[in-house]
Simulated scan of single mutants.
Amino acid sequence: MSLAAVRPIRSSLLTAALLFAGAGQALADDWGMVVGAGDESAKKVGIIAGWDRERPLWQGEKWHLGLRHEVELGFWDVPHASDTVEFGYSPILRLIRPLGQHERLFTEGSVGVRLLSNTRMSSDTNLSTAFQFSDMLGVGYQWGPKQRHTVGTRYVHLSNAGIKKPNDGMNFGLMYYQYKFR
């Protein structure tokens, strides 16, 4: 991808980031950081803004199913594509098991969408399109009054789902921390 082609994408991502920061103040219940590593020696760091649906989608005796929304702004360092920016949204289903008044475990999964500023990660890896789907599976733990603290780990696969070839995709192993302000 030429530098001239990258500039409009970066401008769009910068605009999205500013909207993210402004809307996030009004919408987000919690903010967090995500770090991890992936294919092609990629490293990632990002900011997550999230909010939960007030009532569970399903309530069992010991478990319940919740819906969470997250917006993420990520920055990748890939040896052949440094300064790659990722912006995306994910609706997340969480199967939650309370452990007491102030603790709970959960497993989570999602199919979200992403926009990337670069598509060529190396001479062997080409994502072909700036638009990507983000499949995620994870586990986590929450503690404190109102479960204010959350830590977790996630496996994420990004792919354009065959919209355009090649469709090499990228995989990341991530760890994250979130703090609930409301």
Rank of each mutant, 00 (worst) to 15 (best):
M1R: 11
S2D: 15
L3S: 15
A5D: 15
P8H: 14
S12V: 14
T15G: 14
T15V: 12
A16C: 10
G22W: 13
Q25N: 10
Q25K: 11
L27P: 04
D29P: 01
D29G: 13
D29F: 00
V34L: 11
A37N: 06
G38S: 12
K43N: 12
K43D: 04
V45G: 13
I47S: 08
R53P: 00
R53G: 07
R55P: 00
L57P: 04
L65N: 01
G66E: 10
R68L: 09
H69V: 04
V71Q: 05
V71A: 12
F75T: 00
F75G: 08
F75D: 00
H80D: 13
V85T: 10
V85D: 00
L95W: 10
G100M: 07
H102L: 04
R104G: 03
L105I: 04
L105K: 01
T107D: 00
S110F: 01
V113H: 02
V113C: 03
L116C: 05
L116Y: 11
S117A: 06
N118R: 14
N118F: 00
T119Y: 01
M121L: 10
N126M: 00
S128M: 06
T129A: 09
F131N: 04
F133M: 07
D135G: 11
L137A: 15
G138W: 12
V139P: 05
Y141G: 07
Y141D: 11
Q142F: 05
Y155R: 10
Y155F: 14
V156T: 07
H157I: 08
L158A: 02
S159K: 08
A161C: 07
A161H: 08
P166G: 03
P166D: 11
N167V: 06
D168I: 07
D168V: 06
G169I: 10
N171Y: 03
G173H: 11
L174Y: 11
L174V: 08
L174C: 13
Y176E: 06
K180P: 05
